[in-house]
Simulated assay, not measured.
Amino acid sequence: MNKVSRLGVRQLRIFAALIKTRNLSAVADQMGLTQQAVSANLTTLREVFSDPLFARTGRGVMPTALALELRGEVDDILAALERLVERAPFDPAQVVGTLNVSASDYAHQVVIAPKLAQIRQQAPGLKLILSEMLVDAVANKMASGEIDLVISLNDYVPAHFSRQTLFDEHYVCVAGAGSPLAKGRISLSTLARQPHVVVSPARANLIGSADGWFQARGLTREVILSVPHFLLVPSMVSTANAVAFLPSRLLPSPGLVALRLEDDACPPGYQLIAAWHPRSNSNPLINWLVGLLSS
């Protein structure tokens, strides 16, 4: 049997206590053990180190030369074990490291940007890498540790990942400033006939999140342009004299005007979440950042 496998924390604590007290009875009382139990553990120590370690005297025991040599190393091991299980409370100010946060431009804009000053103030040693979320790769990138945190919709995150809801969001229909559509309420049939700009951050196509909502009302909208980022919408809508649905937290936006739809109709909104790999459930840095972002 490997000698190391025979060593346990109890043996090391008995060794350290004997070095200090040099009395088996005192060590037994101190550790709540019988003197026989202390002697049995001492026998194990002697066998592991092939040395008596402690020689009996009239007043107790005397450490051998090897025992005195081992004293510092044993103390270091016990101190390391104490630090391992009795960690200090998490303090973001002491953090020195990097986190990769993956999200759409919208999520970086409305979640990270407003909290950046607080993050810098509370954790000045933390560096952030903001990356674009690639839906088809997010599971593998989080499993490999390349991505630490994702800010996204529930549907884009694997079901077994841990998550925290940040807020509920809804859409607003917009057109370019000065559009005649802004003069009154618009019927959905009229809206469907307008040229539409959609945002497809996950996959490049002409499919937008409101398509199903129009179809449920027997309408098909005229999509003329798909862009990968929400922050491209204002210039594209104005240039193409088109309309689009934007998350409310991106408004107001220069060059855009919100349209009023009949019966205040609006396509379904969504929850924006922060998600992380289950292995990070006990990571105090992830927990702190998610708490800050959701406050």
Rank of each mutant, 00 (worst) to 15 (best):
I77E: 09
V61P: 06
D76M: 12
M31Y: 08
A79E: 15
G60N: 07
A26W: 00
A65E: 15
E73M: 10
L70K: 09
M31D: 03
L81R: 12
R59P: 00
E47G: 00
V48Y: 10
T43F: 09
L42R: 08
L70N: 06
G60A: 11
Q36C: 03
T34M: 03
L70M: 14
T57W: 09
E73N: 07
E47W: 03
A40S: 12
L66D: 05
F54Q: 04
D29Q: 12
V27C: 07
F54R: 01
L53F: 03
T57A: 11
A80I: 00
L66A: 07
A37I: 00
V38N: 06
D29C: 01
F49D: 02
S50F: 01
M62P: 00
V27S: 07
A37W: 00
R56Y: 01
A67F: 09
V48F: 06
L81C: 11
L78Y: 10
L68I: 02
Q30V: 01
E73Y: 10
R59M: 08
G60F: 12
E69P: 00
G60P: 08
A67S: 13
L68S: 09
R56P: 00
L78Q: 12
G60H: 08
A55H: 05
L45A: 09
G58S: 07
A55K: 11
V38C: 08
M62H: 11
D75T: 07
T57M: 09
F49V: 02
L81I: 14
E47Y: 02
G60S: 09
L66Y: 03
Q30C: 03
P52Y: 06
V74L: 06
G72H: 14
M31F: 10
E73T: 13
S50L: 10
G60L: 08
E69D: 15
L45Y: 10
G60T: 07
T64A: 08
R56K: 14
A80G: 04
A79C: 03
A67R: 07
I77W: 12
L70V: 11
L81N: 06
A80F: 04
T64E: 12
A65K: 13
R56E: 06
P52Q: 05
F49G: 03
L33I: 01
F54G: 04
R46L: 03
T34Q: 04
L81A: 14
T34C: 02
V38S: 06
S39G: 12
L53D: 01
R59F: 11
Q36V: 10
